[in-house]
């Protein structure tokens, strides 16, 4: 009888192509010959993994790394790597890694899964919650090793949304360049430390930042330059303060932009009210909120609203004409 392991290359290629991604991973575990064959196969000959979302998480309890992937809303998988046990667990099956390191194994698994990714992911998230893990744990190397792996293979993560939960800027800077800039739309940064500060001018130099359309961050941003954020159709961030001149620059950019939706700035302090009134004219006051309305360059029906709440938060958004408050003035579009 002919065995599956004696099939010619073309036949094996065909079988791989018609298999689903998990069958190929299973075949890879059958024997050395299959593993070599699959690893040497060009990515274009592998089936699409059809994964929607992926995530890699370092977890301080029990020194673990988790690799999550969601194929559809009702099909979620997790591979768990435990530093204490030096093991990998997938679907109730635990493998002991002997002399291998969990970080290396997790990264190799991720690399393998990415080989099968043809369609774009909706979201890829990183969570580096290693602050309370002992200093000598290899889990601290996860961000830098991830960065090395993808630099070596030249592979970029094709995802629309890129989420990083971290407690220092270095972690973000290690992984943000891994996203494919042509596909990235949304950068979402979370701080795992309440006092976390980010020097955003460094992050703004990346290609990923320049190509993204949406930005959200709950970290406190330093060195914010409004020219770095004016291309976002939507953004929400925290920073010290924004000058009246910079706010006016944003206003001018937004009213002439065709894709602007909203932006929200949470400021530590803002005391440029007089300057702003001089620039934008009389405001409409409602409680502790001051509002201005401006016509847009490309729309008759929609209006840009600017609101300053309690002298610290500022919001720009687009509203319908009917949402303009009674008694408020709608300023005509004026480039200057």
């Amino acid at each position: 009888m002919s065995s599956l392991s004696e099939m010619p290359e073309l036949v094996m290629e065909n079988i791989m192509w018609f298999s689903d991604f998990r069958s190929v991973l299973t075949l890879r575990q059958v024997c050395r010959d299959f593993r070599n064959f699959i690893d040497d196969l060009n990515d274009s000959k592998l089936p699409d993994s059809k994964i929607l979302k992926m995530g890699i998480i370092s977890e301080p309890d029990e020194n673990k790394i988790m690799l999550d992937f969601l194929e559809s809303e009702d099909s979620f998988h997790r591979i768990e790597y435990s530093e204490y046990e030096n093991s990998r667990k997938f679907q109730e099956k635990t493998t002991y890694l002997e002399n291998l390191n969990i970080v290396d194994v997790a990264i190799r698994d991720l690399e393998l899964i990415l080989k099968f990714q043809k369609s774009n992911l909706e979201c890829f998230s990183f969570c580096f919650d290693d602050f309370s893990i002992q200093d000598d744990s290899s889990i601290h190397n996860l961000p830098i090793k991830l960065s090395n792996m993808l630099n070596v293979t030249g592979r970029k993560i094709k995802t629309k949304k890129f989420t990083v939960k971290s407690h220092c800027q270095f972690q973000i800077m290690s992984v943000l360049p891994l996203a494919e800039p042509e596909i990235l739309e949304f950068i979402n940064l979370f701080s795992l430390d309440d006092n976390m500060e980010l020097e955003i001018d460094e992050i703004a130099k990346t290609e990923q930042w320049k190509k993204a359309m949406i930005f959200r961050s709950d970290c406190h941003l330093l060195n914010l330059n409004v020219e770095d954020i004016c291309h976002f159709s939507s953004c929400a961030l925290k920073t010290n303060s924004i000058s009246a001149r910079d706010l006016d620059f944003l206003k001018k950019t937004y009213i002439s932009s065709s894709n602007f939706e909203s932006s929200y700035f949470e400021l530590k302090n803002f005391n440029k009210n007089e300057e702003i009134s001089n620039l934008w004219g009389p405001e409409f006051i409602s409680g502790s909120t001051r509002q201005w309305y401006f016509r847009l360059k490309d729309s008759e029906k929609k209006i840009m609203r600017i609101e300053i709440y309690q002298d610290c938060d500022i919001q720009f958004d687009i509203v319908k004409m009917s949402e303009v408050r009674n008694g408020a003035i709608v300023h005509d579009y004026n480039e200057n």
């Binding site: 599956l4 036949v11 065909n14 018609f18 298999s19 299973t26």
Partner: peptide, 13 residues
């Protein structure tokens, strides 16, 4: 090959 792929699906190594 499709048939072989079908026979592999869902099996363990």
């Amino acid at each position: 090959c499709k048939q072989v792929a079908m026979m592999v699906k869902g099996k363990s190594p």
